[in-house]
Design a protein around this nucleic acid. Sequence first.
DNA 1: AGCCAAAGTTGAACGTGTTCAAAACACTCC
DNA 2: GGAGTGTTTTGAACACGTTCAACTTTGGCT
Lengths: 285, 285
Amino acid sequence: MEETNDRGAAPGPVVPGGGTGGAGGAGNAAAAVAAGELPGGRARPKTGKSEQTRAAILGTAMRLFQERGYDRTTMRAIAQEAGVSVGNAYYYFESKEFLIQGFYDLMTQDHARDATARMEGMRDFAERLETALASWLDCAAEYHGFAAQFFRTAADPDSSLSPFSNESHPARATAVALFADVLGGSDLAPKLDAELAELLPDLLWLHLMAVVLYWVFDRTEDTARTREFVRRSTPLVARVIAVSRYRAFRPLVRDATSLIQDFILPAIGRTPLPAPPAPAGKGRR
Amino acid sequence: MEETNDRGAAPGPVVPGGGTGGAGGAGNAAAAVAAGELPGGRARPKTGKSEQTRAAILGTAMRLFQERGYDRTTMRAIAQEAGVSVGNAYYYFESKEFLIQGFYDLMTQDHARDATARMEGMRDFAERLETALASWLDCAAEYHGFAAQFFRTAADPDSSLSPFSNESHPARATAVALFADVLGGSDLAPKLDAELAELLPDLLWLHLMAVVLYWVFDRTEDTARTREFVRRSTPLVARVIAVSRYRAFRPLVRDATSLIQDFILPAIGRTPLPAPPAPAGKGRR
DNA sequence: AGCCAAAGTTGAACGTGTTCAAAACACTCC
DNA sequence: GGAGTGTTTTGAACACGTTCAACTTTGGCT
């Protein structure tokens, strides 16, 4: 072993809360990292110490991703700036992509909180839906730069990070629960066919995924185009749903519903199992 | 699909038509490689020689991708089996992903040919559409293993390989043209609103993209589930289109149409712009 | 205190995609 | 033939994600 253990001088990992550079300015999600969640790693903590290290790594990664983009941020850089070794980063995150997963989980929670707050008091379904989607755009805004990377992995069926894969982390459940609330808190809910009401949360989540896809490809300033798209498309969605009750649309809606039930929902991991009622708001497992 | 490795030990690049043409390892697409297309590389050929090298590399890559999967196929292995150096492979293909693009272009042409042939004589729109989609599933079947990789890059807006990106290679145009034919050759075409008929080819292409997404995640034997999904969903799509003419649906259809025209089509590169002459510029990132 | 297993941490090493300066080749014009 | 020019080919070198065997720290136990 070399006696020139330069590392000796370096202190331990960065301290939890303010450690990440004080005025750094990472977003809400990154800030929440330090709070001590436990999204997707593999560590089984006994002391809070390891949580700190984990948070330091994730926080640093997010900051660097924002600053330089995903591809140009190396694991070595993350480790160095977080004050740990490369191997240590891999002790907490199975791979570089898992860092994104860790971030995505946090952002999803941010979104659920923010959207719920914003919808407070609103009863009109279209309005609620638009608010929820706009909220997502705001929560995600600062990460637009490297969000593409997340979507890339989302499209990989082999990756356990894909939101479409069965065992996909709590993030999906949280998001779907939010949309259940979007519908449930609206004046539209009681008027709907029970069967349709059952499907809608998942469908609305799919709708969000489509919006996200749009957003990822949107290169306009502040993703203004996506915002406009949401503004224009949401009322239409609401109208389609509202109108589905009328006689003329019934046969079509019926067939579509059963198609979705048989093919779409199972594909996104919503097996027709005796699902326990998920309490809206806290998405833990 | 014989596994006869008849090209193996040749020192130089594989011979032109005969090499792959003979017993050929890979499927139709790979065979067509040798024909001398010029999909997505960067070479500006003067002799036919370089085409041979290019085809040898692409063909070998496809074979190895099928045999071992995308990730477990190294550029070194491709180069070695194709009888060229690593650097040479990069001379013809900007990156490993571009190999997939080269393949995708070929498969798209296969599909267009096959689907057109199969639809011969059919007039019913639903039937034509289902045939076209089933044809795609058949053409793509043998590549299911590494198709995921293609879809991964498709979701990356920074990659010029994305079918959603503006300058996306001829493959998209070919596919859209096919769907225009699906519609145009059907008895439904004359009955349709002109505006709607204008949109439909692109929309149907989007529909295909959705099916592809489903297919990528489908793990059933021979992707039976996707096939069933197509069988069930196609009539519904046809009915929605057919029914859109009736008075009750008009306002909805109108709004949807304009929404699509304003937001969806431009996003997939169908800008109603004054169309500059010939953007010969190669896609960079 | 001493011991031990588990948790945490390290950095060198490996495999792989990619780059690049130089060599080999092909072709044209003198 | 030879000089000049553009194309094709080479393989060593580089950067990065990832692995791993060994080391250090922690905390419970006697």
